[in-house]
Amino acid sequence: MTPLEWQRDLKRKGSKLLLSSILIAMHCHHYNINLQHMLEITMGDQGIELMYRSAEEASYFMFKEYFRKYGRIKTLKSKIELACSVYQNCGLGVLHFLKIQSDCGHAISPASHHVTGWLAKHGRRDTTGCHFTRGWIAGLFEVLFGRPLGTYKVVETACKMMRNDTCIFEIME
């Protein structure tokens, strides 16, 4: 796996926390899940869409910067490895991409921050809930294949929040 160089890239600049020049913050599962719950309850599908688009946009600009900075990482495979490393090292969980093409893809996640957090706070749910990860994947694909924001749609077909064995994501253009 192509790792991010954490010792070098996770830095403080005054009170700011930076990951390779991207301003980041640490938040716990309480806050992340509270936000999700609030969006779903008050806005329904519109709230889910907002969560997806917010993750997509943040992921898009983050990976644009990473791949620019890590210019030596050129192949699609190595970029995906870097992205998965970022996901894991940011405490977001584990992602495996089983199929990656410019017009479609398939990914699974056996562990996730949002799944762990949701189950801890609310228990099982009846609908898929990994809206953050869907958006995160969409933003990544748009950078990988040089497409604008909003190009890809990511659907979750199985979710550990529903007590499925793993989360499964289908990516389509």
């Binding site: 980041i24 640490m26 716990c28 992340n32 943040a58 992921s59 977001l92 957090g117």
Partner: peptide, 10 residues
């Protein structure tokens, strides 16, 4: 459980 992510998202 902590996560690190871009403030742009929040």
């Amino acid at each position: 459980y902590l996560s690190l992510f871009s403030v742009r998202y929040y």
